[in-house]
Every structure is written in structure tokens, then in C-alpha cells.
Nucleic acid binder design. Sequence first.
RNA 1: GCCCCUGUAGCUCAGUGGAUAGAGCGUUGGCCUCCGGAGCCAAAAGCGACAGUUCGAGUCUGUCCAGGGGUGCCA
Length: 605
Amino acid sequence: MFEPQQKRIADKIRTYCSEHQLPQPGEITWNPIPFSGEWGITTSFFQLAAVESREVKETTGKSLNVTERAQQLATDIAAFLSDEPGFVRREAVRGYLNLYYSPAEYSKSLVDTIIQQGFDFGRGDPKGERVMIEYAQPNMLHSFHIGHFRNAILGESLARVVEFAGFDIIRATYPGDIGLGVITVVWIYQKFYQGQEPQGIHERGQWLLKIYVEAVAMLQEKEGETPEEKTQREAYDTERRELYHKWDAGDPEVRALWLKLRGWSLDELNDIFNMLAIKMDVWFYESEVDEPAKAIVDELIAKGIADDERPQGGAVIVHIDEKLGLKKEKYRSNIILRSDSTTLYLTKDLALAKIKFETYHADRSIYVVDVRQGMHLQQAFKILEMWGFPQALKCYHLGYGFVSLPEGAMSARKGRVVLFKDVADEAVRRVMAEIAEKNPDMAEDARQNVAQQVGLGAMAFAMLSIDNNKDMVYDMNTALNFDGHTGPYIQNAHVRANSIINKAGGFPAQAEFGYPLTSHEVQLIDLMSRFPTTVQQAAQEYRPLVIANYAYELASTFHSFYHVVAVIQTENPAVRAARLRLVAAARQTLANALRLLDIEAPPVM
RNA sequence: GCCCCUGUAGCUCAGUGGAUAGAGCGUUGGCCUCCGGAGCCAAAAGCGACAGUUCGAGUCUGUCCAGGGGUGCCA
């Protein structure tokens, strides 16, 4: 919101340079002054001094001391600038020009803006570009574990950030609803559990995981198995594969059973999406992309992009490096159709991309997918480019490190997973205990709701406050900590702000900031003013972490302010009014930041 | 072999080429006659190594060292 002032002064600096036969500075960038309690903007003159030094050296053979020269320039320009409206003070320090804002004007202007814009404070101008974000692609019939949660919360937060930054968003999910793993569950159900149906959405979903693990154990070769066991196991495996072929052939009975079990799994997934307030716009089922994918293979062969080596007993292959004329191996080559003419993941991803571009008119496509699929996606993007999709250049793989457990890697096959729902339930239990201890007056009917908001807030922040490309070891006690660098800490700042305003009976419609602001107030205002640019940065970098860091810093600043600066108890009514509006603005900014993280901002906790 | 990611405090992590590298957990010590202690204030402790680019490098480049992942009929 201070851009006009910054631009005006930058123009004056350029004028100064041309009037004094100095080189023209490049882009003049303004940063916040990095010292606590100071409020203003800064720019440095090292680059200008370095350019000047090189020019002087060319003519005279002697170079300048850049550090000293930068300080000289800062001093001269500080003197050249007259008293600028909106600023109260300027200084030249160690090569930097610092300009200090006039707190009264800007505080009022910022606080008024935040309160007036409400939940739109920080929203970017429309960009006129449509972005599809694909995330939350769980394997069906395996239940939803915390690795899936990392994917889902990262994708949802990214979607919110990019949308708030001004882009049109399409949320897409791509559930893996078919494959040998899925058929394995259908097989064991049909063989041993036909007709059974546990009660409860999550009980049913988790039960499917249980019988899956059982099936994997049955089908796995064991050490020292007897000939009878071996025969039995092989017979089971044959049954399973026959079942897959029946599914493939569209056998009505198999399809019906598959749809029933898939429905159970989808019920659970939808319930989790509800808990996380995720509303998908598009569902691409893997089972539905199979046919379009086969058609694409023919097209790629016809265009000379793919080589059909099936006549020689091979598969259909795209030799990417070779087609691009690369000497060194980079994208390598990959198979897009098996020798038996069935499709692969890559084939389906190509089909999916075509649908995204042609049916949904996505200008840009973001894939929130495990980092281990990086190679695969680079190949897919490259093939799309060769195929002639200009959007391929705007495809982006937001990879994330895998989530493991203190006892090792998670494995659905072995049943060694930590389920999202189990952690969420435990989170609610712990928050309920906390509420009983710290806020016993809270109405009984509000507790469950608040407990869920706070518990999920802790889980979400624990995921989003670590950079997406880092692996993490999931420790439930760390993730469900409520103190310090956590979601509840931020939510609590919001609750405290809310509490002040409620206790004061609301906040006034107008207030002036013409009193000496404490450094705590200045820091709060300064930080709030940076929210809109922070949103843009997060969207540009595809990183919800930027918002997570911001939200924590804002909460921390508010907690300090809260502790030191009296609001309701302030005697001077004009100061009290201004501070109440300041608190209202902080409450709003905290709520807006939390919303981008898919974390609720409860009024009490 | 080739490609990708990571290495910052005892631990877990932040850190748009810029001034004094920041948090949390843990440790130690303070703070409730005061708007909610899920809080505040303070102490001790750190950039894997070596070169290079630059006025300036935790940040960019290169080479090592250490760890993880990927690398044609899985997803």
C-alpha cells in the first residue's frame, strides 16, 4: 500500500543521478528496515557505487572504495530529498538510505483498509489465468494415512493461496481406483468376506485396509513353505489375476462389487475432505482415463513421437533424449504402453493432461505429487511439449518429501501406517482435555467443534511449517503439541484479540493514531502491511510455508503486544479507540492468514 | 554410472545476494492485585569442507564429504 510513495522517491533518486552525472541505478528495491521497533523502508547504494567504481577505473585506472562511496551517496541523496510527505525522518547509515514512516497517517490508513476489506484484505488483483491444481490422489481401498494428509493439506493450502493471489483455480483429485492392489481387496472380500459390512464410514474404510494387509500376507511367498502352501498361494494369485481380467472385460458382477467397495472408500475420503473443508471441482478416476489413454498412444505413434516396438516383442516407447537430439542422458526414455497393450501410469497422466488443457482450459497445471515421481513427471511434461501443448511449459511438479514413522517407512502392504483419522481423533481428545483444564467455562456444545478446529489446526500447521521438499519423520507427540511454534499458538492469538474486542463491546468506527506509538504497535502495523505482498510471494513460489511463517510471526508479534500494551485499560479514550481498531485489524489479518493454511480461526478455545 | 533432493544451535526447522543468521522443543532463570499462562521476558549454543563469482555469500557457481530418493513394461 506504500508503492506510490516508494515510486516517487525512486524517481527522485534517478533525477539526482542524472543531475550529478552518476550512472543510472538499476531497479530500486525497497525493503523493510530490519530492526525491531523501527518502521520504514530502506534501499542501499552498493550497486550504484560498484558501477561507478568500474567506470572510474576504466578512465582513471583507480577504483573506488565501494563501501565508503555507497555511504557518501546515501548521505548526499538523503540531503537531496526534502521532507517527503508521509515520512518523518530519513538517515544514511553504512550505505543504506532509511526512510521512516509517519505512524499517524499510515497506521490509520492501513487499519481502516483492513477493517473495511475484511476477509478480502490481502487478496490480489485478478490475473486472468486459470490454474488447475491436482492433489489428494489416494489409492482407493487402502484408507487415508498421514502421508496422504501431507499431500492433501499442502494442495489445499496452495489452492487457497493461489486463488487468493488472484488466479482462477480448479481443484482436481485423481484417485487410484483400479490396479492390482485394488483388485486384491475385491478378491479377498469376495472369497472370504462376502456380505460383510462394518458399520461406520471410517470403520468400513479402515476394515478394507485390514483385509488388504491380510490378502497381501496370503499372496506373499513365505520362507520354508510346504508344497501345499505353495500350491494354495499360487492358486489364490491366479484367482486374483483372473478377477482383474474379468474387471477389465467389464464383467457386471465384478464391476458391481468393485463399485460397492470403492464406494465405501470414497465415503471415507469424502468425510475426510469435509473435515478438511476441501471441495474438489473435478474427480478424475484412474479407471476412467484408461480408454482415452489408449487412444493417445496411437496418436503419439502416428506423430513419430513414440516408437511401436511391439512387433519385435517390445512395448511402445518414447525415446525422449533421442527425439530431442540430446547427447547426454537427461529425460531418458519410458514406456507408454506395455507389450500386452495395457496402459501405464505415464499413459494415463498424458491423457489426463490433455483433458485438463482441452476440456478444462487450464493455462497452468500444478501437480502435488510425491517427490519420488519427479522423473516420471518431467518425462510427462516433456512428452506433452513434444506433442505440441504450450501449457506443458507451465506444468509444475510440487513435490513433497515422504513421511515416515519413527520405526521406519510406512507401508500399506504391511499395514504399518498411521491413519489420519486416528491422529485426528487423538488430537480432539487432547484438546478436550486441555479445554477442561484451561477453559472450564466453555459451553459443552461448543467444545467438540472447537476441539476439532484446534486439533486439526495443530496437525495442519505441523505439516505446512516444514518446507515441502523436506522428508519428515512423523511423531504424533510433536505434531500434536499445542505450545510454541504450532497452529494453536496462532489460533490463540486470534482468540485473545477476539476476547479483547468482545470485552470492550466491539470497536469504534473511527480512530486517529496521532499519539506516540509503542514499538509493539509499530511492529504489528508493519507486519500487517506486508500481508498482501506475502500472499503474492507464496503464490509465485508455490509455497504455503511462506504463509505459515508469516502467520506465526504475526501471532508472535501480537502475543508480545498483548502482554505489554494495554488496550481496554488504557485511560485516554482516543488511544483506547485506536488500539481497539488495531486489535480488530490484527484479528482479521490472523484469520485471513489462517484461512490460507486451511486452519480455522475459532472465537474461543 | 547418470539425475534429483538434503546438510544452519543438543533435537526439529525458518532464513527475497545486503546491516547484528532467527524460531520452537529441550536446558537454566524470571513474570499471574494486570484485556485468557495454549502466553510473555531473558541466558547458553550454530551456517559440512575447500575454492570461485561479487562492493558484499547461509543464499549463486564448481569440486569434494555425508545422508536420502529416482533411474524402461509399479504407482
